[in-house]
């Protein structure tokens, strides 16, 4: 696929004029590279979410490695937070347990470092913003980049509030993954698309995280609108739990994000179960051969 998205890649939000933009060296986007590599291989990018520290720091590393070695192109490491308003019961239960066990943020960077060393997947963090704010966005970004992290998915940060994050992410070459929703206006889809680097996270349904039997019909429209606004890569998340979901999404989107199903597998069967489920989900990501049956 030929890319015409250098404008997307250079952090134009920080208000530089065009001349300066041309001089700014393009920021390397690890997430974009992973998704494009999947595309080149004839696959829908498979993006998997797991919470840091669940059920223990060691097992969360093993689980993420199993995810990466069984077909995930991008791994999202969620940071447990006391007030996760976008999360459904399964992920809430997991992250509450992690916090009750005394999890500290420093471990996130150790997990990222270990997972990036042991897999080829791009590893991003998914975090509610107060965690980053408390540490300081500059420090957080520096430590994430040093650990080999590719960027941050920000479920409760909209571009209007993200000034400091634009600067820090450009400075440390991190991807900014904003969400777009079925309810987002066209103006906002444009803003989100311009603000994102790596991919745009298309929320498939108005709701919180959790496995659903079918992928919402709203998802296709969400993806189409982000593409129309110029997003080179759009991945769909929320409610995706089966290979056939990924196959269906692959018809119109660049990536599919699975969270709750993986967390439930980890809860019930440990890191090995994550590997098994990831391998199964990855069959749905294969586009050119009919991976079913």
């Amino acid at each position: 696929m030929t890319e015409q998205n250098t404008g997307q890649e250079t952090g134009q939000q920080s208000g530089q004029n065009t001349e300066q933009q041309v001089e700014t060296p393009a920021i390397r986007s690890l997430t974009s590279e992973s998704i494009e590599a999947a595309r080149d291989a004839g696959r829908t990018a498979f993006i998997g979410y797991l919470p840091a520290g669940f059920p223990t720091v060691e097992d969360s590393i093993e689980a993420a490695v199993a995810l990466g070695n069984n077909g995930a192109d991008v791994i999202e490491i969620g940071i447990p937070y006391s007030d996760p308003v976008m999360d459904g019961p399964v992920i809430q239960a997991a992250t509450s347990q992690v916090l009750a066990d005394g999890f500290r943020i420093d471990a996130v960077f150790d997990i990222i470092r270990a997972v990036t060393q042991r897999t080829d997947a791009a590893v991003v963090v998914m975090t509610y913003w107060n965690i980053v704010d408390r540490m300081g966005v500059e420090t957080f970004a520096r430590r994430l980049a040093e650990a080999g992290g590719a960027g941050i998915v920000t479920p409760d940060l909209v571009p209007e509030e993200a000034g400091a994050w634009f600067e820090a992410s450009d400075r440390y070459g991190l991807d900014r993954i904003f969400l777009t929703a079925p309810s987002s206006t066209d103006e906002r889809v444009e803003l989100i698309t311009e603000s994102s680097r790596g991919f745009v996270y298309g929320v498939s349904v108005m709701g919180v995280t959790g496995a659903r039997s079918e992928v919402s019909t709203a998802a296709e429209n969400v993806v189409a609108r982000a593409h129309a606004a110029g997003a080179p890569r759009v991945a769909v998340g929320l409610g995706i739990s089966k290979p056939e979901h990924i196959r269906e999404i692959g018809a119109y989107a660049d990536g599919a994000i699975v969270g709750t199903a993986l967390v439930a597998a980890l809860r019930d069967g440990g890191p090995a179960a994550v590997g098994t489920l990831a391998a199964e989900l990855a069959t749905g990501a294969v586009k050119n051969s009919r991976g079913d049956a």
Binding site: V85, L157, E161, F178, T180, A181, S183, S184, R188, V203
Partner: peptide, 14 residues
């Protein structure tokens, strides 16, 4: 102040 919220709710807030 501000609006530190999931994107899904921004349209409703507007």
């Amino acid at each position: 102040g501000g609006r530190w919220m999931p994107e899904s709710l921004i349209a409703a807030l507007e």
